[in-house]
């Protein structure tokens, strides 16, 4: 109970902070929308057939990059004024701190994802709503996997200078299985294919991925935070 209350305190603090300044959120949204609208349309010929085959890849590439912008800041925002020290010395559970930050990051990432979807549909002429329920589930599960790994990475590299340089080597390789599953599922669901046996297997992979890394992150949170 106390754990949940602490988690909620941290999550609401982070969300309130981010929604007040909107720095990371705006950067991520701008990045995602420019990428979808302009860059990817030049990179891939946006015919209906082509787009339908690559929709999952397009979307998740955008989400992964934009998400990194948000999640990277997760622990960095605690560095000003040594707030992280105060949090660590307080009775706040390390796992609660981590979970609270992950929840806030997840919420922000979902905002980006849900904003991108209709824009993608309009500009690439794709009807994405045919399997809306499962699609939203996949967006959420994929976002959670991204969030957990990105938040852990943020905690590990909180006071390192060249944090961004290590993103490609540390975060993205870790996320590959989850991204792969999310991409397969998204492409199929956007094309209107219902969840059949094969897709269920990918879904199970994505859920297992999320569970494994959430458990690891919560278990190792204290080891990371305490010097």
């Amino acid at each position: 109970m106390r754990f949940l209350r602490q988690t909620w305190l941290v999550a609401s603090k982070d969300l309130r902070s981010e929604l007040r300044t909107k720095e990371a959120l705006n950067a991520a949204l701008a990045f995602a929308l420019v990428m979808i609208l302009l860059l990817l349309s030049f990179a891939f010929d946006p015919t209906a057939e082509e787009t339908r085959r690559t929709s999952g890849g397009l979307l998740w590439l955008v989400f992964a990059f934009a998400g990194a912008l948000i999640l990277n800041r997760s622990f960095v925002r605690e560095l000003t004024n040594d707030c992280l020290d105060v949090l660590v010395s307080s009775p706040l559970d390390g796992a609660a701190l981590f979970l609270g930050k992950s929840l806030a990051g997840f919420f922000l990432l979902m905002i980006v994802e849900l904003a991108c979807l209709p824009v993608f549909g309009i500009f690439y002429n794709v009807a994405w709503h045919r399997q809306l329920g499962p699609l939203l589930l996949v967006l959420a599960l994929g976002a959670w996997g991204l969030t957990v790994i990105g938040t852990m990475f943020s905690a590990l590299t909180v006071n390192l200078r060249l944090r961004e340089l290590m993103l490609p080597a540390l975060v993205y390789p870790l996320m590959i299985p989850g991204l792969l599953a999310a991409i397969q599922l998204t492409t199929a669901l956007v094309a209107g294919r219902p969840l059949d046996a094969e897709l269920y297997d990918w879904l199970k992979l994505l859920v297992s991925f999320d569970i494994i890394f959430t458990a690891l992150a919560l278990g190792l949170a204290d080891a990371v935070l305490l010097g």
Partner: peptide, 12 residues
């Protein structure tokens, strides 16, 4: 604890 940093959030 009261360290070198003031330990409060600027945006709040």
């Amino acid at each position: 604890v009261l360290g070198h940093g003031i330990g409060v959030y600027e945006e709040f």
